[in-house]
Amino acid sequence: MTRLVRAGALALVLATAAVPAAYAQAAPAADTLFRATTLNLSAHGETRIAPDMATITLGVQIEAPTAQGAMRANAEQMNAVIAALKKAGIAERDIQTSNLSLNPQYVYQENQPPKLSGYQASNQVSVRVNDLKDLGKAVDATVGAGANRVNGISFGLKDSTAAENAAREQAVKALAAKADLYAKAAGYHVARLVSLSEAGGYSPPSPMPMLAMARMEKADATPVAAGELSVGIDVSAVYELAK
């Protein structure tokens, strides 16, 4: 029994002694990491490009004494609007219903309970226009066919890859220039790029309100200015510096 106890105690001593040795082997790597001089930076790259497509949201809003009458009248007028869009060159796949609603309408008088006056039916579609030359024509056609709600327009890109890559190149060049500047100011030079990460990218802008309907109906043709889109990329990096 005594021999077993002594053997167990010896094993415990050896195991305890082995722990510092394991930590000693890992220490140099950690120590090297802490002794390295690093620089954490971020930069932004941006390019501007003309859009090549647009999305408009438009629709029909009708009021009638009954719910059934409001929905029926709305459907008839909306069918005419969709037919006008197709005639203007918009493909059926580029027309999508985005909102359909039916709401009761009330008249409010002081000290009186609300009185039902009728129903309001609303039908709204999102229309993708792939040729901007057809944009004004499409809007005019829908207004002529009975659309009385044009809620907004947004311009976009069918393929944003080239614009994003141009912004990436600008961002990385700006990042490298900034790293060289900081390193030189601190009395170092950039030894290597340790890590690089990206954030941001192209996202279609939110729809912008268009001209009032009454003003659009009086115009000979609806003017639409596409302008330019801004595509931005943010990058961050860690550089190792050396003397």
Rank of each mutant, 00 (worst) to 15 (best):
K158P: 08
S98L: 13
I95T: 12
G146M: 07
D94R: 04
N148I: 03
V125C: 01
N151F: 08
N111A: 14
D131V: 04
G118Y: 10
V127K: 02
G146E: 09
V129Q: 02
G156Y: 01
G146S: 09
V139A: 12
K137T: 08
A83F: 07
S160H: 13
G136L: 02
T97Q: 11
A88N: 05
N103T: 15
Y119W: 15
Q120K: 15
K158T: 15
Y106H: 12
L116D: 15
D131I: 04
V81C: 03
A84P: 14
A84F: 07
N148W: 01
V81T: 05
L132T: 05
G118H: 10
I82C: 00
Q105I: 11
I82Y: 03
M78N: 12
Q112L: 12
I90F: 00
A145N: 12
A138E: 02
Q96W: 03
R149Y: 01
N103E: 13
L135F: 02
V125P: 00
G156P: 06
I153G: 03
Y119F: 09
S122H: 09
G152T: 09
S117E: 14
F155T: 04
G136W: 01
V139M: 15
K115S: 14
K86N: 10
A141P: 08
V150H: 04
Y106A: 10
A147T: 01
G156W: 00
N151P: 12
Q109E: 11
N130A: 11
P104Q: 12
I95G: 10
G144D: 08
L102H: 07
K137H: 06
N103F: 07
L102I: 14
I82M: 04
T142E: 01
G136I: 03
A88M: 04
V139L: 14
V139K: 09
D140R: 07
D140Y: 03
I90C: 05
P113Q: 10
L85D: 05
Q96C: 02
T97N: 14
S117W: 09
V129T: 05
A83K: 13
K133Y: 04
K133P: 02
N103I: 12
N123M: 12
L132F: 06
L157V: 14
A91N: 12
D134W: 00
N79T: 02
L157Q: 15
N148M: 03
D159F: 08
A138C: 01
V139E: 14
I153L: 13
G152K: 05
Q77E: 11
G144C: 06
L135I: 08
T142P: 01
S126V: 01
V127I: 03
I90A: 05
K86T: 15
L135S: 05
Y106N: 14
L100P: 03
Y119N: 08
I95D: 09
Y108T: 09
Q112A: 14
V143M: 04
N99D: 10
R93A: 10
A83C: 03
D94G: 07
Q96G: 00
S154T: 12
V150L: 13
S117F: 10
T97D: 11
I153S: 02
I153E: 05
Q124I: 13
D159L: 07
V143L: 11
D131T: 07
L100S: 11
Q105S: 07
Q109A: 15
Q105F: 02
Q105W: 02
D159G: 05
Q120F: 14
S126T: 03
L85F: 06
N123C: 05
S122A: 13
A121V: 09
D134Y: 02
G89W: 02
A80T: 12
V81E: 00
P104T: 07
R128A: 05
I153H: 03
